[in-house]
Amino acid sequence: MKPVIARCLVRLYPRTWRERYGAEFEALLESEQAHWGSVLNVLSRAIQERIFPTQGGAMKREPNSFGAVVRHPSALVPIAMSMTALALVLGHIALYGAVRESDEGVTAHLWQILMGAQLPVLAFFAFRWLPRAPRPALGVLGLQAGAVLAAMAPVLYFNL
């Protein structure tokens, strides 16, 4: 693998991981043949390392890393609520079809509660984490926004 590609792939890992394993990992990548399988393997492991970083031993814990911030309840709860709302809508569509009903049913009310109740949690997360760790917090807010859009997509698409 070309050194420049190896260096770019190593840069995908968190800083603390790179400080410990970066040099030897880069040497290993340079000795490997470049193919998409290896690149995808490194890419997926780097993402995993960012979300669930290796800690303890020779690794220092970085409290404001993306992986640390995303595991706080105020980061995870809104995502879980949006995913639950999405599952409700999809389940409703699967069972009853994508038909707009004149009277809002239980599913619609639950969806509204889930989407509305996460707003204070989102605000709390932004208020607490944006000043402390702007970049990781923006990444988490992006994930949360993606989850909200995913939950809203079927409602808007089917005009429910």
């Binding site: 393997n41 890419l43 780097a46």
Partner: peptide, 9 residues
């Protein structure tokens, strides 16, 4: 894969 190996290491 190299990523899998170093994850295990």
């Amino acid at each position: 894969g190299p990523g899998t190996l170093y994850g295990a290491i």
